[in-house]
Design a protein around this nucleic acid. Structure first.
Lengths: 129, 129
DNA sequence: ATTAGTGTAATATATAACTAGTACACGAAT
DNA sequence: ATTCGTGTACTAGTTATATATTACACTAAT
């Protein structure tokens, strides 16, 4: 039985992508937006698992992935900390930007849209909702 | 043992999304780009499974999905045909466009980019490679 | 030394996606 | 009626994701 007396989903997850992957993105975003400061201490795996409503093992996988990306330093017995390497964070920002744009361009051409048409629609949308 | 004497992957698939879903997108793109004409006959599930190198069951799921989207008409014993409803195709195009743009805008804000910065980079990229 | 708070590891279970193989059902041509 | 090319259905098995639970290991504070 899954979910029998289990967690509540405090976070919204997409069903078409692994949760651990979505959490990695979420945290990357928080680092890039400055919500998580360099050198700052992250929540413990247990705390965070409660907050987002997933299993500890899943959070563990997220933290492991973040460390392998060079975004965090994990110190056993102390906790997990955001890297103080600001160059790494700048690089992450550029990498994300390039990846976002490339994937978008690929989708555009895959569905037969022109870049001009899309940019036009893109600019009409206001982000003020 | 999987793949032991099995298929060859003739198509490139992403690992972070179900294959059937990628195939649906691929075919939607071909419809929108006119590679698949309204009323035209699609490959049989067996033909197509060989061409893209996946199992017949997976193709069956793709075709079922396309039919539930109103993009194809399946006639048992005869085959699967692209819908002749051009309004449906126009609608698909608009839906895809809106979905693409919304998801992109969401990603942009999730990682802390401004729309202006992204559009600028977007326009610098030439699609001529 | 003990304790509390960390990260880490291991085993078992559940579910979805995909593959593999086989069999059945329908329609058209012969 | 038979055959061929269709779509469809079913059972079984593998892999990846996620959960559940328990146990272990390191660090700091007491």
């Amino acid at each position: 039985m899954v979910g029998e007396g289990g967690y509540e989903m405090t976070q919204d997850f997409t069903r078409d992508k692994p949760i651990y992957s979505q959490l990695v993105d979420l945290i990357c975003g928080d680092i890039l937006k400055g919500n998580l400061q360099p050198g700052g201490k992250m929540q413990s795996v247990r705390e965070y698992s409660l907050e987002v409503g997933v299993n500890v093992n899943t959070v563990q996988r997220v933290y492991k992935e973040l460390e392998s990306m060079g975004l965090t330093d994990t110190k056993r017995g102390q906790g997990t900390f955001i890297t103080t390497d600001k160059a790494r964070i700048s690089q992450l920002r550029e990498d994300m930007k390039i990846e976002l744009i490339n994937q978008f361009l690929q989708s555009i051409s895959a569905f037969g849209f022109s870049k001009e048409e899309i940019v036009q629609s893109l600019l009409r949308k206001d982000g003020t909702k």
